[in-house]
Design a protein around this nucleic acid. Structure first.
Lengths: 187, 187
DNA sequence: TTTATTTTGTACCTATCGGTACAATGCGCG
DNA sequence: CGCGCATTGTACCGATAGGTACAAAATAAA
């Protein structure tokens, strides 16, 4: 049996702290208490400190979406891939009970620190969805517009769901967004 | 001539700092340098410190929207009021170059501190827009859904615009959202 | 002009921030 | 076992966090 605390095991814990408090609101002490690891271990795995931790977390989130959402959208049959996307989104964001770390980082000064990863996440998502829609028979322009519309709708729903503590808002929004992607809708 | 630094004069300056760095990322020293006021003056106007400053800023934002958006939506002729809303939104958020403080505060731990003000802002906006749509002939259900859809779309557009640094995204989205509110669209 | 009040600058407080140093462990392996 | 490396806890660092104390200055009221 390997050591219990490998770098990959810690990343999700750290991610949850960043998600809850934002980049600036996340202190090293909060991370140690949440992960159960002392500074020694933390800096052993992440020599770059807080910034490297956040980077690792963003990379992890990006990899998860790449595997479960973006890649399927690009290579699987479009309608199956889109259905899969909705499932992934709903479970990942816990029906609106969990926010999007990337979106949250985008809104304050944190954005500048991780600009590439943050913009890459959204650009890839939109491009992949657009691709699936085109393969489904949509015109390129309408596909691009709708892909943007959907990704942005998800982010907006996460903001409002958390702002108003409305349990049903996210699910309601997903239903509405889904209906805008019905095959044959665009052109 | 009264003193130059009245409380109301300082609030917009402080607001810009919070907008840029988020609640946790905003330090007193950053506020003093941005406003040109020392801690003495700052704590004279805001005895409650940082938290009171943020509260005042949120109140100020809420009042602006109440006056320029919510109230007109409730009392003016609906189509004129909605047109006015789009103008206000576009100029307030500087075509996506400026984020929504309330939305940003909603995403991290800051939310809990100002929960009422944050949820109130969005709930009032949605209710006011819904009201205008109903007076425009929409069915209550469709009006509620579309009002939510539009407010959430604006927030999503702000997130994505800042995340991707796409200059045109916000304007593009506004056009799309506008078209969903065309009279006679709902029922 | 004298008085009372509002407004400011400066110095200072403790707590915590992110980060470092390093010695003491644990553990895999020959 | 005993060697070597990965892992960890502890103590510590300077800087800055938010906040307070209070006397000097500006202003308004008399």
């Amino acid at each position: 049996m390997r050591t219990l605390n490998q770098r990959p095991d810690v990343i999700p814990l750290v991610a949850e702290v960043f998600r809850e408090f934002g980049y600036e609101g996340t202190s090293l002490s909060r991370i140690t208490e949440r992960t159960g690891m002392g500074k020694g271990s933390l800096y052993h795995f992440f020599p770059g400190g807080k910034e490297e931790m956040a980077n690792a977390v963003l990379e992890d989130v990006g990899a998860w979406f790449e595997r479960h959402v973006f890649e399927p959208l690009r290579s699987e049959p479009p309608s199956a891939a889109i259905a899969r996307m909705w499932d992934a989104v709903d479970s990942y964001f816990r029906s609106g009970g969990r926010i999007c770390l990337v979106g949250a980082f985008a809104l304050d000064g944190t954005r500048d620190r991780f600009a590439d990863r943050i913009s890459g996440y959204f650009i890839q998502w939109i491009a992949a969805l657009r691709d699936a829609l085109i393969r489904q028979g949509w015109g390129p322009a309408a596909a691009g517009e709708s892909a943007e519309d959907v990704v942005l709708g998800i982010q907006g729903a996460l903001v409002l769901a958390r702002a108003t503590a409305d349990e049903g808002l996210f699910a309601r929004t997903i239903v509405r967004l889904k209906s805008r992607l019905r095959p044959g809708e665009g052109r």
